[in-house]
Simulated scan of single mutants.
Amino acid sequence: MGGPAEPHEPRREGAGRPPEDDDNYGYNDEAFDDVSAYARRGRASDGPGYSPDAGYSPSAGYASDGDPGDEYEPPIITEDELAGLGPEGGGGPRRVLPLEDEPTTLVARYLFPTERYRGEWKRHWISLTGPLGIGAGATLALGYLAGFLTRQNVTGLVTVAVLIWLGVISWVAWKVFDWYFDRFILTNKRVMVVNGIVTRRVAMMPLLRVTDMKYEQSALGRMLSYGTFVLESAGQDQALREVKYLPNPNELYLRVVEEMYEPQAVEARLGKDSEGDDA
């Protein structure tokens, strides 16, 4: 009995060529050359990524010499293929509404020149139910009391009741104006909350510092489409953590997350929308 057969180095005349000891693998040189030539002729029609001399290039998603260590690069998806995912291509409704063009004068003063504005939102009208309910209740109660005192000819107390009613209505009006000037703002660099009529308060958090973000919706919030945003930051002192009564929380959540993780997609969509408007 002879000793163990010495290993043979594979010949690299073509990708995946069997070793020189063809008898051990059941291959024949002439047959293998015919099969290789046939494969090259068949694959030459697969596309521009194939070359008969060099095989499939890595940029086309195939290894050039068949080695498993070659780097794999995914195929490039064109804009025409992505267009089929949009509403025009039947890919379903768009979850993120178009971006607003310009900030209002109320918000523009708090943005610096290189900051790109993404949108601003007032709180949901549900936040006014408390003040409006108090105003309606005070109107009914004090109106009944004023009528009763008038019938009793107690004019001094009627005047007091009317003054109390005016004070309550003024407070309700203040709350409505405060709601109107209260804005949640998103830019490409931060989220902000601006509120206050006489004393303005501006709270902000950079998007780079946001470590976690979630929103909460009660049963009534799901019915009326509002929720509470909770922002977590790496810092301990957070000027902006919980924002209540934000409208359309699911869409707003998607917009903030997209701005955090896919800012290039936002810029591309914004540029495409502006080109469409110009056309």
Score class of each variant (00 low, 15 high):
Pro7Trp: 15
Arg11Phe: 08
Arg12Cys: 05
Glu13Asn: 14
Glu13Phe: 08
Ala15Ile: 13
Pro18Ile: 10
Glu20Asn: 03
Asp22Gln: 06
Phe32Arg: 12
Phe32Gly: 00
Asp34Glu: 15
Tyr38Ser: 10
Ala39Asn: 15
Arg40Lys: 12
Arg43His: 03
Ala44Asn: 10
Ala44Gly: 08
Asp46Cys: 06
Ser51His: 07
Asp53Lys: 10
Asp53Trp: 09
Tyr62His: 08
Tyr62Lys: 05
Ser64Met: 09
Asp67Met: 11
Glu73His: 06
Pro74Lys: 07
Ile77Ser: 00
Asp80Arg: 11
Ala83Trp: 13
Gly86Tyr: 13
Gly86Phe: 03
Gly86Ile: 05
Pro87Tyr: 07
Gly89His: 14
Gly90Lys: 04
Pro93Ala: 12
Arg95Ile: 04
Val96Phe: 15
Pro98Asn: 05
Glu100Thr: 08
Asp101Lys: 12
Glu102Asn: 03
Pro103Phe: 10
Pro103Gln: 13
Thr104Gly: 14
Val107Gln: 01
Leu111Arg: 01
Phe112Gln: 09
Pro113Arg: 05
Glu115Asn: 06
Arg116Ile: 15
Arg116Cys: 03
Tyr117Met: 08
Gly119Gln: 07
Glu120Cys: 01
Lys122Ser: 08
Lys122Gly: 01
Arg123Asp: 06
Pro131Cys: 00
Ile134Lys: 06
Gly135Met: 01
Gly137Leu: 07
Ala138Asp: 07
Thr139Asp: 00
Ala141Gly: 05
Ala141Met: 08
Leu142Phe: 07
Tyr144Ala: 12
Leu145Thr: 11
Phe148Thr: 10
Leu149Ile: 11
Thr150Met: 14
Gln152Lys: 11
Val160Trp: 05
Ile164Pro: 00
Leu166Lys: 06
Ser170Lys: 13
Ala173Ser: 13
Ala173Met: 07
Trp179Glu: 02
Trp179Lys: 03
Asp182Val: 02
Asp182Phe: 12
Thr187Tyr: 10
Asn188Met: 14
Lys189Val: 10
Arg190Gln: 00
Val194Trp: 00
Asn195Gln: 10
Arg200Cys: 00
Arg201Phe: 14
Arg201His: 08
Ala203Val: 10
Met204Gln: 14
Leu207Val: 07
Val210Arg: 00
Glu216Val: 05
Gln217Lys: 04
Gln217Gly: 10
Leu220Gln: 02
Gly221Thr: 00
Arg222Glu: 07
Ser225Phe: 01
Gly227Pro: 00
Gly227Phe: 04
Phe229Cys: 02
Val230Arg: 03
Gly235Thr: 12
Leu240Ser: 03
Leu240Trp: 11
Glu242Asp: 12
Val243His: 00
Leu246Asp: 08
Pro249Gly: 09
Glu251Tyr: 01
Arg255Tyr: 04
Val257His: 01
Glu259Met: 06
Glu259Thr: 15
Pro263Gly: 02
Gln264Arg: 11
Ala265Tyr: 15
Ala265Cys: 01
Val266Met: 06
Glu267Tyr: 11
Glu267Pro: 00
Arg269Tyr: 04
Arg269His: 09
Ser274Ala: 11
Glu275His: 10
Asp277Ser: 15
Ala279Val: 14
